[in-house]
């Protein structure tokens, strides 16, 4: 485990922002931290980044206590804050140079790192411009780039795609995947379920300062008892077939919306809907169209809390 948190707690005044959570981040993974606004994601990340001292609990990096000795993690950690943390009136290059310098990089080595990082984040042609002249997407990219200069083992990204265009977002997601393939461990915070689904091997779902569920996506979905919904439309009435539908394996419930329009809830793992559709098609009763809504983390969260991830 590259990061291990035991009973981690952070209290501001008498407000408990993080309420005794446990985390285990395996080396080489992309781990998602998913939760609505105010869940305590940034606070958790700030403790791992040694910005906040935990009120109580233990925090280990490679088995070493970083609450007592923050220096263990600092050289190996890349931190991407939730907001754009750059000198807006300096150029992209000057920002990279300064923050690289803080990690002791200099001279040719620094130049090389800046070149390779700016290629990864795809802004090498705009390095001479002031950050304030960048688009939102470019700012986000360089915000990430700054954290990559010293080639950290672990990179923590706090909602790195907030408020940007789809193109930049995709670029960032690709970058994260690329970094992970090169061996970097990533802690990725978001309240975009789709991003976490696309990236993360395992996920922690947080709410009100607590981890309310964790595991791989499949584990979370089956734990949460969520189901695949199949919505079907026929060109004839299927009233008399409903009983036969019910007998198909994994069919849990059937709702008839109109005579020709039916919704089926399927249990089982992600593939159960295939068999059901296959069965119904083989009945040859005039299936016109269908669509499948697979269970996702959003539904998991809804199930767990009764609320949506985004307000």
């Amino acid at each position: 485990m590259i990061i291990k948190a035991e009973n981690l707690k952070k209290v501001f005044g008498n407000f408990v922002a993080v309420d005794g959570i446990n985390l285990e981040i395996p080396s080489g993974q992309i781990v998602g931290l998913l939760g609505p606004n105010g869940a305590g994601k940034s606070t958790t990340i700030s403790m791992i980044s040694t910005l906040y001292k935990p009120t109580s609990g233990r925090l280990l990096f490679d088995g070493k206590d970083i609450v007592k000795e923050p220096k263990w993690i600092k050289p190996h950690l890349g931190y991407v804050p939730q907001e754009i943390a750059l000198y807006q009136t300096l150029t992209g290059y000057e920002n990279l140079k300064y923050f690289g310098g803080l990690y002791g990089l200099k001279g040719v080595e620094l130049k090389k790192r800046i070149a390779s990082v700016s290629e990864i984040i795809g802004i090498d042609d705009r390095l001479k411009d002031k950050v304030e002249q960048y688009s939102g997407g470019m700012k986000r990219r360089i915000n990430i780039g700054v954290a990559l200069l010293h080639n950290p083992k672990l990179i923590i990204m706090d909602e790195p795609t907030v408020g940007i265009d789809p193109q930049s977002r995709n670029h960032i997601l690709d970058t994260v995947k690329l970094l992970n393939e090169q061996g970097m461990t990533v802690i990725y915070t978001s309240h975009y379920m789709e991003e976490v689904e696309a990236l993360c091997q395992s996920v922690y779902i947080m709410d009100h300062g607590k981890v309310i569920a964790s595991g791989t996506q499949e584990e979370l979905i089956s734990q949460s008892d969520s189901h695949t919904a199949i919505h079907m439309t026929f060109d004839v009435s299927v009233k008399e077939y409903l009983a036969r539908f019910k007998e198909i394996k994994n069919v849990m419930a059937i709702t008839q919306n109109t005579e020709m329009d039916v919704s089926i809830l399927a249990s089982g793992n992600g593939n159960s809907q295939k068999e059901i559709i296959h069965e119904i098609m083989s009945m040859d009763i005039g299936l016109v169209s269908f669509d499948v809504t697979k269970p996702n983390l959003e539904q998991v969260f809804l199930k767990l809390t009764g609320r949506g991830l985004r307000d």
């Binding site: 943390a85 807006q88 700054v146």
Partner: peptide, 13 residues
């Protein structure tokens, strides 16, 4: 406010 200070602190300044 710009969090550049945070960045510095994270890197050990």
């Amino acid at each position: 406010k710009m969090l550049t200070l945070d960045r510095g602190v994270v890197s050990g300044v």
